[in-house]
Amino acid sequence: MGDSVFPLNYLPLGKKARVKALISVGSTRRRMLDLGIISNTEVEALQKSPSGDPIAYCIRGAVIALRSEEASQILVEEIY
């Protein structure tokens, strides 16, 4: 993995990125996989909640809000 890979919660709003690795474990991992978060999945940061966390992402056509705890375990690479 190169330097360009960073946790999803740092993805600026309106930007798209590609999932490079999912580092969560156990039931969290299961849930993230179930959402379709696997390698090379495209995600877009859409909207922050009023307090800045969670953040809503567009994942495979669905809008899913993730807390920073979960999003920080999804490593992505920005698509320019």
């Binding site: 849930r31 993230m32 809503a56 979960e70």
Partner: peptide, 11 residues
């Protein structure tokens, strides 16, 4: 501690 969750915002 709070467990993980994902909240869908439907159309």
């Amino acid at each position: 501690l709070p467990s993980s969750f994902a909240l869908e915002l439907p159309p």
